[in-house]
């Protein structure tokens, strides 16, 4: 396939995702301007991060006036899954130049990882396909953030619209989205209990760091050693 048709094949595959992210991008835009960010700061967040869940976490902690280090650590933790994405998808990127590869990683969001893996299995992963998927999606994300931020300022009473609860409910749905993972319930319960205790005894933002550490360590302890892999 020519580069051009590869690019459009990528764009075509991203259409359903584009449709889905318009909603969340507008929501982020509206929530941003109602959580103390200016219009341009809200758009800057979408342009520089391009990872919805962590952008909402940033808004939440900024609203709570959490210290900068804890904001950055929370964003790092939420986005930590991407480490696995580039470790896996990077294996199919031998055909990419250095600058192509390291600009490709900038866009490596959840749907792009999924699409890239499938593409690499069935065809080979060409840079034109990858960027054909990524770049239009990126501009849809920024564009609809801009739209949401413009309309969000028209809302004078965000509490009546439940904007303060929006983040919690959204995070809850994300949390439940991971429930098929091994030992999910055990690690979530451990983290949940630990975070409540730390929240009461020490206070924010430590409940996020200490609480999540407890669940992650429990997962490491009860994780089943796989016979094939333990030899390393």
């Amino acid at each position: 396939m020519k580069n051009e048709s590869q690019f459009f094949a990528g764009t075509k595959d991203s259409l359903p995702i584009m449709f889905a992210v318009t909603f969340f991008a507008m929501l982020f835009g509206a929530t941003g301007v109602n959580n103390g960010l200016t219009f341009s700061e809200t758009v800057l967040s979408s342009a520089s991060v391009f990872a919805g869940a962590s952008q909402f976490v940033f808004l939440d902690l900024y609203g709570q006036q959490a210290p900068v280090w804890s904001v950055l650590l929370a964003v790092f933790a939420i986005n930590f899954r991407h480490v696995l994405y580039s470790a896996s998808l990077g294996r199919y990127m031998d055909g990419l130049s250095f600058s192509q590869k390291y600009s490709a990683f900038f866009f490596l969001c959840d749907p792009l990882f999924g699409a890239g893996e499938i593409r690499a299995q069935n065809h080979s992963l060409k840079p034109s396909y990858y960027f054909g998927y990524a770049i239009p999606l990126y501009f849809v994300w920024i564009g609809f953030t801009t739209l949401g931020a413009s309309f969000g300022k028209l809302i004078t009473n965000p509490e009546a619209f439940g904007f303060d609860m929006l983040l919690s409910i959204y995070f809850l749905s994300l949390l439940m989205g991971f429930r098929s993972r091994p030992n999910w319930l055990a690690s979530v319960l451990a983290s949940g209990i630990a975070s409540v205790l730390v929240f009461k005894l020490i206070g924010a933002p430590w409940h996020i760091m200490i609480g999540s550490m407890v669940g992650v360590m429990l997962a490491a302890m009860i994780g089943k050693p796989d016979e094939d892999k333990t030899s390393v």
Partner: peptide, 14 residues
């Protein structure tokens, strides 16, 4: 196993 648990463990604390 630890890496797999990270997103859920963080989200519940938030």
């Amino acid at each position: 196993a630890a890496l797999e648990a990270v997103p859920g463990a963080v989200l519940v604390t938030i």
